[in-house]
């Protein structure tokens, strides 16, 4: 009787462990990530990492092969089917903030082997392509200011809010 109970407990624990491990497989996974790479124009985004983990379960959707998750893209699977978890997992660990400096371009050109990872978006694009692409599919918020409110610096360059054009060239307000 005891043995059966113990087996059941072990079984349940095992299932729980599997569930947990598919979600997180190490310490140091942040619940919140503050993204402020374009804070000149937009307020920082407090990204709710935990909520996205709970909703998506699959780390590979955002982190590719780096978390050791099974990769689905056949192109990636060629090398990364069993490559396991990597030391670098964060977006900014691989996606450079300035992808078009002469140095970055040279590095990309000289990369060995001269295939794969060459068409890697910069950090800002990695965020937007990944976030916005998924939000469109999952019908999440997709407006610019749904994620990051524009600040005064942003309003100034967008000529919006208190920086709005004073005298419109054509009287178009009547049509709206």
């Amino acid at each position: 009787m005891h043995a059966v109970k113990r087996q059941m407990i072990l079984g349940v624990t095992g299932i729980l462990m599997m569930l947990v491990s598919s979600v997180c497989f190490g310490a140091g996974i942040p619940d919140k990530v503050t993204i402020n790479s374009i804070q000149k124009y937009y307020a920082p985004v407090s990204f709710n990492h935990a909520a996205h983990i709970n909703k998506l379960k699959d780390c590979g959707l955002c982190h590719h092969h780096t978390t050791g998750a099974q990769v689905t893209d056949p192109n990636c699977a060629r090398c990364h089917k069993n490559s396991g978890a990597q030391a670098t997992v964060s977006c900014k660990g691989c996606h450079t903030a300035e992808p078009f400096t002469p140095e970055a371009l040279k590095q990309q050109r000289d990369q060995q082997p001269p295939i794969y990872h060459r068409d890697k978006p910069g950090l800002k694009a990695a965020y937007h392509i990944s976030c916005l692409g998924c939000h469109e599919k999952m019908h999440g918020p997709t407006g610019c200011q749904d994620c990051h409110k524009r600040n005064d610096g942003g309003d100034a360059i967008f000529k919006s809010g208190k920086y709005a054009p004073k005298a419109p060239a054509k009287p178009k307000a009547a049509h709206h």
């Binding site: 524009r150 360059i157 967008f158 000529k159 709005a164 054009p165 419109p168």
Partner: peptide
Amino acid sequence: VACNNEQKLPEPDEAFDDMS
């Protein structure tokens, strides 16, 4: 937006967040 600022172009007719 970036072009307007970089090239120091005149103020646009509508704000740049006007999608009309």
